[in-house]
């Protein structure tokens, strides 16, 4: 009886939209049929059209690049910071919680902040690069696809480091001190103890952090919208933002759903891997 509200909730707000999304993707829902209500079943036409355009492949490659680079950097930086905070020193707690702020503020705010910092005319990043003589003229960060993608990744890494850090830190705290002491007797100290003790003991947590990072990064949407809106010329779209553009800008909800459903499939594959790593949770 206690489960009824949740059951209904899942059916109404997850089950039905998912079913609806699948059914949308097989109909020619566009700006005309949305109004007159004459959307017909068109089979796989939306999938074929949506997944054969040149923009979708750009978005797909962008999504891969954005995801892989973000995750590796978030993880490496997060792990280094976690290792640092795993040591004892004054103000540890205060500083550790301050680092969480980037993760807690709305992503659209982070996007706005980085948009301003990387502004071509008066962004502080250009200012610093000019002062250090790394560049001789201001860089138009957000006007070129390659550099715009870099800014998107930097923003996302900034947001993700705290999350990685907290999870890895709690994993490090769970490793019993005795294991390090025993390893030290066997001659494993410093860097060697990191590779022979720390990493093997963090294996499960590392798997979880990487998979969650992957799934969350596939969802990223706010960062694209607040930095480039997919531009210039759709060159910085991710699958999520491209699905949005198809549906809500081009009013082609059929194709938008076809892209979104592809994204769901990709997420589910990694969700399966995540669940397999984290098998205990469901018991």
């Amino acid at each position: 009886m206690f489960l009824i509200p949740l059951g209904v909730y899942i059916l109404v707000l997850f089950g039905y939209p998912l079913y609806y999304s699948v059914s949308m993707s097989f109909k020619n829902l566009n700006q005309i049929t949305l109004i007159n209500g004459n959307a017909n079943f068109v089979g796989f036409q939306n999938y074929i059209q949506a997944w054969s355009s040149s923009i979708i492949w750009r978005s797909f490659l962008n999504t891969i690049q954005f995801t892989v680079v973000s995750i590796i950097m978030q993880f490496v930086i997060g792990l280094l910071v976690a290792l640092l905070f795993n040591r004892r020193f004054p103000l540890n707690r205060v500083l550790r919680s301050l680092i969480l702020v980037p993760w807690l503020i709305p992503q659209i705010v982070s996007g706005a902040i980085f948009n301003w910092m990387f502004s071509s005319t008066n962004g502080v990043v250009n200012q610093i690069l000019l002062d250090l003589h790394i560049v001789s003229t201001p860089v138009n960060w957000l006007l070129h696809p390659e550099s715009a993608l870099i800014v998107m990744m930097i923003t996302n890494i900034w947001i993700g480091v705290p999350f990685n850090m907290v999870l890895l830190y709690s994993g490090l705290q769970d490793i019993p001190r005795e294991i390090y002491e025993a390893a030290a007797i066997d001659g494993a100290r410093g860097v060697r103890s990191f590779f022979y003790v720390t990493l093997p003991n963090l294996k499960v947590i590392i798997g979880i952090v990487l998979m969650l990072g992957l799934i969350y990064t596939l969802k990223v949407f706010d960062i694209v919208m607040s930095l480039t809106q997919g531009g210039p010329a759709n060159m910085t779209q991710l699958l999520s933002s491209w699905s949005y553009t198809l549906s809500f800008t081009n009013l082609n909800f059929g194709q938008g759903a076809a892209v979104a459903n592809g994204l769901i499939v990709i997420s589910l594959v990694f969700t399966a891997i995540y669940l397999w790593i984290n098998r205990k949770t469901a018991d």
Partner: peptide, 17 residues
Amino acid sequence: LIVQMIPSISLANALFL
């Protein structure tokens, strides 16, 4: 655990209609 992972944009398309 699974629905938590579904990209929100996928729900948003359908929720709008």
